[in-house]
Design a binder for these strands. Structure first.
Length: 572
RNA sequence: GGGCGCGUCGCAUAGCUGGAUAGUGCACCGGCCUCCUAAGCCGGGUUCCGUGGGUUCGAAUCCUGCCGCGCCCGCCA
């Protein structure tokens, strides 16, 4: 909408001046209309009434009387000036190409490789990948990055378990701890196998202190960049990580690069940075020699004002390595975006302050609220989880039932292909369409919903457009679109499409992928209405004008789907 | 105890840089396939926008008290 505002403003300015309204405080009042029927932009005239000594309705009319727009028209409706862009102006927006906007590194997911990917983590992955896709659609180059925790306690426990427990012990411990061993098609995946060792070791820790001793020793060695231990860690977690990545790939989520936490111990950058921090004005040393930054002066309140970055024994902490990691990321991209759960808010703030002490710019961060089960928080350790592999299976089974019902004419193979796409798209969209700061309680029915306002609805609209495209065959479109003649639902469809790039950019800038999801749903609605009112193919042959619009919409629907991770199948 | 976030129809959700009758989906009721995919379209809503104050011409939106829910407050990751 900003492009339209920019175009309208000069004319409006002179109109306001000639009516007698001083200043430019009203500029920010010019905003998009709430309803399409009211036009594209609206200016409320209440505040001018007193100044001019007449009613808001009269002010609106006066402004409209002197306002000369060449990109649309203005009408006074009560106390509002409503401005509607002309079809010609909208058409110009459609023909604009996406400009290149530079590089951004988006780090997301980065889940500990200690077990299968579960739905609690899915929000990070779906949001991260949706941001990645939206940025790409808007003209950015994106590095999708996964930070691998390859040296913490969790990996240490996994490694210890695999080296010290045999299968019988694992089975016995899990039975005793009442952690169910799932029997699923994925039971033979390494992430699903190795998580049992991880869970068993966690149970054993509670009664055998030798476990923690062993783990602690491993973790300490890893922090000293012990090559042997790091290699053993990798041997333990890599098959798990690979399994997780298979799940993510199934959801259409791929990464361009992986960075291991141990990198920054091995290359010494953490040590360099810890020494640098000593010259910070915030630097303090605790009684036992631990180093921290005192953040009280930086607006951190309560008990958490100390940011420890070096232990009493001289070693670094996770957060310290995170600082080194951010410095490394800045060497790869001029913009950084992190997708983090709300539990990382404080830590992220502390890291940002510490980075500034190192003369390093903090990253942009998007936080999202947790996904929990109806009976509490998810935990891989306790086995209180719904694994993504199982959710996707279920989604695809349910989708298959629906698709088969409707399309009995399709081959088994085609049915499977479509229902897989529907299942995955619906699962993703059900996450992406919700505001990130709204908490989600996981319910099967919601997660698998195939109803309207969901991915299948949008996919269906796209499939309709594809069907028309197939049926129409080769069409001579050289006459072009006579856009000024458009009205009704065809005009509304064009209007919707014209704002795609702005909607995309706004969703990116305000970290609100759900807004773009809403735009996409609205586009699908508009296409369905266009479809109802305007036939492309009928007895008389093909209506070229309608065909061109349908083809435009097909392209916009496809691009929109790709930008939010919906698979735009061509029939369903 | 302190910090951050959330609370909108039976359920879910949008709107939150103040402005027009608070949108949308589900559920429920009715209508539309001799015509390009009916997973669609059209019609049907009395919501103290958690609650009490305040600011304003105007408050779901801003300020503030209270209530409820979530997250965080390790020399863990």
């Amino acid at each position: 909408m900003q492009a339209l505002i920019d175009e309208v403003l000069p004319a409006l300015e002179s109109a306001m001046a000639s009516v007698g309204i001083q200043g430019d405080y009203w500029r920010k009042m010019l905003a998009r209309s709430k309803e399409a029927s009211q036009g594209d932009l609206a200016l409320p005239c209440f505040p001018f009434a007193k100044q001019l000594g007449c009613s808001p309705d009269e002010v609106a009319q006066q402004i409209v009387d002197v306002l000369e727009l060449d990109i649309g028209q203005a009408v006074a409706v009560g106390p509002y000036v409503n401005i509607r862009a002309s079809m010609d102006w909208l058409a110009k927006q459609l023909s604009k190409t996406v400009e290149s906007k530079g590089l951004i590194l988006i780090e997301h997911t980065s889940a500990n490789p200690n077990g299968p990917f579960h739905v609690g983590r899915a929000r990070n992955a779906v949001l991260g990948d949706t941001f990645t896709r939206m940025h790409r659609a808007a003209g950015y180059d994106v590095i999708a990055e996964y930070y691998v925790d390859d040296m913490g306690k969790q990996v240490g426990i996994l490694c210890w378990a695999l080296e010290n427990l045999d299968e019988a012990q694992v089975q016995a411990l899990l039975a005793e701890g009442e952690i169910p061993i799932e029997d699923s098609p994925h039971s033979s995946k390494e992430d699903h196998i190795r998580v049992l060792w991880y869970q068993a070791a966690n149970l054993l820790r509670a009664k055998d202190p030798a476990v923690d001793d062993g783990v602690t020793e491993l973790v300490q060695l890893s922090e000293e960049a012990d090559a042997d231990v790091l290699a053993r860690f990798e041997a333990a977690y890599q098959p798990v990580l690979d399994g997780m990545l298979v799940t993510l790939s199934r959801m259409g989520i791929e990464f361009d690069s992986f960075t291991k936490e141990s990198t920054f111990i091995v290359d010494g950058s953490v040590e360099v940075l810890m020494n640098q921090l000593q010259s910070s004005e915030l630097h303090c040393v605790a009684e036992n020699g631990a180093h921290y930054l005192e953040l009280e002066s930086k607006g951190i309140q309560g008990k958490s004002t100390r940011f420890y970055y070096r232990r009493g024994d001289g070693s670094s902490l996770y957060a310290t390595r995170d600082l080194a990691y951010h410095q490394q990321k800045w060497t790869r991209s001029g913009r950084l975006l992190n997708i983090l759960g709300e539990d990382h808010k404080l830590q992220s703030k502390q890291v940002s302050i510490a980075l500034q002490e190192l003369d390093t710019q903090p990253p942009e961060v998007v936080f999202y609220a947790f996904t929990k089960l109806a009976d509490g928080k998810m935990s891989t350790r306790r086995g209180n989880v719904v694994y993504m592999d199982d959710l996707l299976d279920e989604a695809q089974v349910r989708a298959y039932a629906v698709v088969k019902e409707i399309r009995s004419d399709l081959s088994q193979e085609r049915l499977q292909e479509i229902s897989d796409a529907v299942g995955i798209s619906a699962t993703r969209f059900n996450i992406a369409r919700i505001s990130p700061d709204k908490g989600i309680t996981f319910r099967w029915a919601d997660a698998l919903s195939l109803e309207a306002d969901s991915a299948p609805f949008i996919m269906y609209s796209h499939a309709r457009a594809c069907s028309i495209h197939r049926k129409a065959g080769k069409v001579d479109t050289s006459v072009g679109l006579d856009i000024s003649a458009l009205e009704g639902s065809a005009g509304e469809l064009v209007r919707r499409m014209a704002y795609m790039n702005e909607e995309l950019q706004t969703a990116i800038d305000s970290a609100s992928p759900h807004q773009f999801c809403a735009w996409l749903s609205a586009l699908a609605v508009d296409y369905n209405r266009f479809y109802r009112d305007n036939h492309v193919i009928d007895d008389a042959g093909i209506d070229v004008q309608n065909y061109i619009i349908s083809e435009l919409a097909r392209d916009y629907l496809r691009r929109g789907c790709e930008a939010v991770g919906i698979i735009p199948v061509e029939e369903m």
